[in-house]
Amino acid sequence: MEVQASVRLFGGKTALRDQVVHEAADQGVKAVAWAGTSLAALALARVGVENGFKRALPDLLDSLPMGVLSAVGPHQATLARLGCKTLGDIRRLPRGGVSRRFDKELLAAIDQAYGLLPCVHTWVALPERFESRLELMSRVETAPALLFGARRLLQQLCGWLAARHCGTTAYTLRWAHDSMRSRDAGEGGELTIRTAAPTRDLEHLCRLLAEHLAKVSLAAPVGDLELRADEVVPLQAASASLLPDPAQDGESLQLVLERIAARLGPDRVLRPVIVDDHRVEWMQMWQPAAAPRPRKSAAIKAMPQPSWVLPEPLKLATRGPRPMYQGVLLLLTGPHRVEGGWWHRIGEGEAATTANVQRDYWVALSEHAGVLWIYQERLANDETAWYLHGVFA
């Protein structure tokens, strides 16, 4: 990694080094080293020397075994017969003879490691789909214990999502049983985790997985894990504020609902969601908390909407043509016409009906009950009938 341009952003070399070492350990990295060139850092990491700035670069590299550079590999046997053991021995050979006897990659790697030539790197190309495997260090016999290895795979997934500016709404964890399993155990199993909204939050994904694994029983010990991203969608990360925001502390309601749903079951935790429908009874619906939110377009409201809606419209008494509710009502605004629902069928078979409505809504004022939401049914047999449907706060 080239980190010189990021030193100030992360609070200095020491703070950046500590963060890299900490996060690299979670990714399974065994050695980390620092140096003025990338090949020098790679060579030092291979021999377990971390700090490449304690001494001058030639003094550090000259004493290293020549095998620490990959370009030496194809010629290591020949160089050994010439008496070379270290990188310093290769540097002391005549450059003209080395260039004629060996390929140009050998001298180029030596010069790049010592800083005599600039290093040219190829950008890492991310795969279009995320699939990663992990061989566990020991056989795991209980499902909750799989989280330790799965966390490493999830961290790789979150890094892949961040690089693609995306989030996931579904991912699948597969496990393969040990080869010494019984015949009835099968090859392995899998578990698909879904989220209500796209996310790449590692801790949230791990908590959801832990809740689901707690309900899984393994038929045989597990030796390998595989993680696959099933649904990936673009995700715009929220801008971080320069000032502390107490509202961002703790867990959001959405994350809490998803975690409870994973523990109790997806159909036992419901939440209301707004849908595209101008009929007030169907402007919202209840769905499982972990299910993706339905996409909705921006609704244009022609008149105020009530704070509370009655479960069933209440037919009002009238005095002549004027409706009454705890006194004669004063019509304030309206009519607001709502039509439609012929496509909405309720029930099955011959008993099925349509939820088609044809109404003119009014905002009315009651001397004792406050502001109300009432309507008349259009084309009804009793055109003078009025109904109370909602109450304003």
Rank of each mutant, 00 (worst) to 15 (best):
Met303Tyr: 10
Cys84Ala: 12
Val20Asp: 05
His75Cys: 09
Val120Asn: 08
Tyr361Gln: 09
Glu131Arg: 12
His75Trp: 12
Trp373His: 15
Trp386Gln: 11
Gln156Thr: 03
Arg100Asn: 07
Gly73Asp: 06
Leu205Pro: 03
Ser138Thr: 10
Gln326His: 01
Asp62Arg: 11
Leu126Arg: 03
Tyr387Arg: 11
Pro294Thr: 06
Phe130Leu: 02
Ala364Glu: 06
Cys166Leu: 06
Ser38Val: 13
Leu208Trp: 00
Arg200Val: 04
Leu330Gly: 00
Ser99Thr: 09
Trp286Asn: 02
Gly28Val: 02
His344Glu: 03
Arg359Cys: 13
Ala290Val: 10
Ser38His: 13
Asp276Ala: 11
Gly115His: 08
Ala291Glu: 07
Ala229Arg: 03
Arg378Gln: 15
Pro313Asn: 12
Tyr114Thr: 06
Gln156Asn: 04
Trp160Glu: 05
Gly11Glu: 04
His75Asp: 10
Gly341Leu: 04
Leu213Glu: 07
Thr37Asn: 06
Gly390Ala: 08
Asp277Asn: 11
His336Lys: 06
Leu191Pro: 07
Gly73Gln: 10
Gly390Lys: 03
Thr354Phe: 09
Leu264Ala: 13
Ala162Ser: 13
Trp373Pro: 12
Asp249Cys: 15
Ala5Gln: 12
Ser307Tyr: 04
Cys166Ser: 15
Gln236Tyr: 07
Gln305His: 07
Lys296Glu: 01
Gln155Lys: 13
Asp230Gly: 10
Gly167Asp: 08
Pro234Phe: 10
Ser239Cys: 14
Asp249Phe: 15
His278Ala: 04
Ala109Asp: 11
His121Ala: 09
Val3Trp: 03
Ser217Ile: 03
Pro306Lys: 04
Thr168Trp: 02
Arg345Met: 01
Asp59Arg: 06
Phe102Leu: 14
Tyr387Cys: 09
Thr318His: 04
Ser70Gly: 08
Trp386Arg: 11
Phe10Trp: 12
Ser138Trp: 02
Ala125Ile: 11
Arg46Cys: 10
Ala214Glu: 13
Ala15Trp: 01
Gly320Pro: 00
Thr37Ala: 10
Trp373Val: 15
Glu281Trp: 08
Gln248Val: 15
Cys206Trp: 01
Arg151Asn: 06
Arg164His: 14
Ala45Tyr: 05
Ala196Lys: 06
Leu146Cys: 05
Val232Trp: 07
Val371Glu: 11
Ala125Met: 08
Glu211Met: 12
Leu154Ala: 07
Val391Leu: 14
Val124Asp: 00
Lys30His: 07
Leu147Glu: 10
Gly188Val: 11
Ala317Arg: 08
Leu209Gly: 09
Ala77Tyr: 03
